[in-house]
Design a protein around this nucleic acid. Structure first.
Length: 427
RNA sequence: GGAGGGAUGGCAGAGCGGUUGAAUGCACCGGUCUUGAAAACCGGCAAGAGGUUAUUCUCUUCCAGGGUUCAAAUCCCUGUCCCUCCGCCA
């Protein structure tokens, strides 16, 4: 969420800035609401002040053994007036709030203008797509005989789920293990977190209210608790970042860096027919997620760092990738600037997203009430960042396809061998 | 599932209708003392919001939401979470 006050104070330049998002911003509507708000808020506070004054006089009169009746008469209809004013104020405030909740974050000035992912900019690339002297297969064909099983998953759950057994299951686990080990050696604290979160948490990080249809929603199936709602996490960013909601962090404890390996659940509503084959787009997939909480002046360096941390995973796995700077049309709602890492997939002859690293600046911190005290004792909102380091399912796809051999066997990347009983290949 | 107890500032913990945004202790920050440090002593120390900005003035907040009252941390109701005991359970 953006800051109402600074937004209203400089509404003209904000309107310009937010246009880069192609966001239709109704400045008149907001200013109108603001006038209403101001009117009712001032009135409410005046009435409260009046009531407080009378209340104190009544207390004084009583302790002096004077008759409080005249004072009580004066205050008789104050309560009703106050209630009315309060409810008017609340209506306006709710309107303003939901208006602000639906405005995306302001983009960083370095974000290029563009309509869709086609206009993202390649910042750098690493490794070269390997030339194969045989017909390459994709991960679905490659994985089949080693335990990648979509048919069984369909029976159990439906489309967009997978069962992994035996060597594929081991490779999948090895990848996650390797990533966790790498990041924890690199100053990230490991966390195990809930996979079901409440409405507040999902709101704090920006998934709600706007993107509810992307989430799986659960509720208890009895009358007593039917209002108790949980959302399955679409990313570990939600529980990780919410660990710090409503806190004032000590300056010396910054930056905060955490890593977690969790499943992620996405409804993939609106992507019917896209990437229906294989592991690329699943309702449930594992991801190793990195988050950082930093001081404002350090967050853009932290974005470079967190991206680099994700890149190092791909480098160690010796997977060719490119680093993309997302254009204005493709940056997510809460983010001010995002890099995607795209890994080369020989089976598709394409680079595909395997990591996304974002700086949300104070957009999440404002809803979270996540702050620190600076040297002058001012309370300042912190900046939050998140990055996948990296998506485990897609990493599995990349390893299978990039490490395939003519006979359909799979070489094991050197860094993974110790997690796989020192096997050098799957065959 | 049953029975009971609780939730107060960064932490511990008092207050249980009236000037209490809240005693006290610890922590933290500044100062005195000291060669320096510690100790001691003195002072400071919640967050959010609104108006006005020279300055400040005001409002809200003692788990959350309702209610009673001129007045609620304090009384009543509902919810959430925590603790203890019994039962069940991976």
């Amino acid at each position: 969420m953006l800051d109402r006050k600074s937004l209203v104070n400089d509404i003209k330049s904000f309107k310009e800035v937010i246009q880069r998002r192609n966001f239709a911003f109704d400045d008149n509507y907001l200013l109108e609401l603001e006038n209403e708000r101001k009117k009712h808020q001032i009135k409410t506070q005046e009435l409260q002040k009046l009531r407080n004054t009378y209340t104190k006089s009544i207390a004084k009169a009583k302790s002096n053994n004077e008759n409080p009746k005249p004072l009580l008469d004066k205050v008789a209809d104050l309560g009703a007036m106050l209630d009315k004013e309060k409810s008017l104020l609340k209506i306006v405030q709710d309107k303003i709030n939901s208006f602000l909740m639906n405005i995306p974050n302001i983009l960083h000035e370095s974000v290029p203008l563009g309509k869709s992912e086609d206009e993202n900019i390649e910042v750098s690339s690493w490794g070269k797509p390997k030339e194969f002297d045989f017909m390459v297969k994709d991960h679905v064909d490659l994985g089949k005989k080693y335990g990648l099983d979509f048919t069984t998953a369909t029976k159990i759950s439906g489309a967009r789920f997978v069962v992994m057994t035996n060597q594929i299951a081991l490779l999948h686990r090895a990848l996650a293990q390797f990533m966790l080990d790498y990041h924890t050696k690199n100053d990230y604290q490991e966390a195990y977190v809930p996979y079901l979160v409440n409405t507040d948490s999902a709101t704090n990080t920006g998934q709600l209210p706007k993107f509810e249809e992307d989430l799986f929603k659960t509720s208890l199936n009895n009358n007593k608790d039917k209002d108790k709602v949980f959302y399955l996490i679409p990313t570990a960013e939600i529980p990780l970042i919410n660990m710090f909601s409503d806190t004032i962090i000590k300056e010396q404890d910054l930056p905060i860096k955490f890593v977690a390996h969790t499943p992620s659940f996405r409804s993939e509503a609106g992507s019917y027919g896209r990437d229906t084959r294989g592991l690329i787009r699943q309702h449930q997939f594992d991801k190793v997620e990195l988050i950082q909480v930093t001081k404002p002046e350090n967050s853009y360096q932290a974005l470079e760092d967190i991206t680099c941390d994700a890149e190092n995973i791909l480098k160690d796995l010796e997977l060719p990738y490119r680093k993309m700077l997302l254009c204005s049309g493709d940056v997510g709602f809460s983010s001010a600037k995002t890099y995607d890492l795209e890994v080369w997939l020989p089976g598709q002859k394409k680079y595909r997203e395997i990591s996304s690293c974002s700086n949300c600046e104070d957009f999440q911190a404002r809803r979270l009430k996540l702050r620190f005290k600076d040297k002058d004792d001012n309370t300042i909102l912190l900046h939050t960042l998140n990055g996948s380091g990296v998506a485990v399912g897609r990493a599995l796809v990349a390893v299978l396809e990039n490490y395939q051999q003519a006979d359909g066997s799979i070489k094991i990347p050197t860094v993974l061998q110790k997690y796989m009983n020192f096997k050098k290949e799957i065959k």
